[in-house]
């Protein structure tokens, strides 16, 4: 192989893109040729220099992209392109597009619960690097007003929300309150974790109501199943049973309906016969239907209504 032919293969050799036989030929040539070896070394230096350029994507940008996408899919208008790219426009875009209140906060809740506290009243004047992103990685801002004055300055009022981390025992009343707050987050993972950590056994009406609301209305099946699980100790409660009867007729997920039947039949309750008879008529899942038919039989009730 000549230096000329090898020099064309060096980039492919460097990236491991040559077939084995060509790779062997290049290696043999490199052992014998100092000039081509230098060429390879220079390419390695170039790659190292380019490696320094790689951009780290900040977590807040990823969070915002995910939130925007979710909003667009759930019916919001897709974000429009803005042709203007002045620094103030960029600042305003960056600020306005950041989290706008609790609804968009992502609070991971496990053994640790996160508390978000918003406060208002910050003002911004002058241009600096903070136009790009909040000064603090845990702070998020929503621009409320922009006022330009004739001198060319501008006043911007924005709400700033800071993220705080608190930790505590899951049975602590404060933690339980935060877990209830987490029920209202958009993030289904947060809701599932929160439901799982709520202490339905050490019952308060608020916890019970939150679990019933999650079972009745949460769009995520994982959250509904978790809520059902947590409602087990309260299955005798008349309000809970009413919710179970309603969910049996309305939930579109067979796994949820199956577990609802299990909870309903765990104790003999003749007042549920009507709901079960009605459900069995419209049930299209054979497993749930068989379960309902058996339950009705155990209650000495007919499968159909007359």
């Amino acid at each position: 192989m000549t230096c000329d032919s090898v020099s064309k293969l060096i980039p492919l050799y460097f990236y491991g893109e040559l077939p084995p036989d060509e790779e062997d030929c290049v290696e043999t040539h490199l052992h014998e040729c100092a000039a081509c070896t230098r060429e390879l070394d220079r390419l390695s230096s170039l790659a190292r220099a380019l490696g320094q350029r790689q951009v780290e994507v900040p977590a807040f940008l990823l969070d915002e992209c995910r939130a925007d996408l979710k909003a667009a899919i759930q019916g919001g208008a897709p974000k429009l392109k803005t042709p203007v790219k002045g620094p103030w426009t960029l600042f305003l875009e960056a600020m306005a597009a950041t989290l706008s209140g609790f609804a968009r906060l992502r609070l991971p809740v496990g053994a640790v619960a996160l508390l978000a506290v918003g406060f208002v009243g910050a003002r911004f004047s002058g241009a600096g690097r903070t136009w790009w992103r909040p000064a603090d990685d845990n702070a998020f801002a929503t621009v409320r007003s922009v006022q330009a004055d004739p001198s060319g300055r501008v006043q911007i009022a924005f709400d700033e929300t800071h993220r705080r981390v608190v930790s505590g025992r899951t049975d602590s009343p404060d933690i339980q309150k935060l877990l209830l707050t987490a029920f209202h987050q958009n993030n289904a993972d947060v809701r599932v974790e929160s439901v799982g950590l709520l202490q339905a056994g050490t019952d308060t009406a608020e916890v019970r109501d939150a679990l019933m609301a999650a079972l009745d209305h949460d769009p995520n099946v994982g959250v509904r199943l978790k809520a059902l699980d947590k409602l087990k100790p309260l299955a005798a409660d008349p309000e809970v049973r009413k919710t179970l009867a309603r969910v049996l007729q309305t939930d579109d997920n067979a796994a949820v309906r199956m577990q609802v039947v299990d909870l309903l039949v765990a104790r003999r309750d003749d007042t549920m016969v009507g709901a079960m008879q009605s459900a069995v008529q419209r049930e299209d899942n054979s497993g749930v239907r068989q379960k309902l038919e058996k339950a009705l039989k155990d209650l000495n009730a007919s499968v159909g209504t007359f």
């Binding site: 350029r53 790689q54 951009v55 994507v57 940008l61 915002e64 992209c65 925007d68 996408l69 667009a72 897709p78 974000k79 392109k81 803005t82 790219k85 960029l90 875009e93 960056a94 597009a97």
Partner: peptide
Amino acid sequence: MNLLQSPEDARDVYQ
């Protein structure tokens, strides 16, 4: 981000 060097444009591409 690496290609466009602009968070706004990267965001538009993502969406």
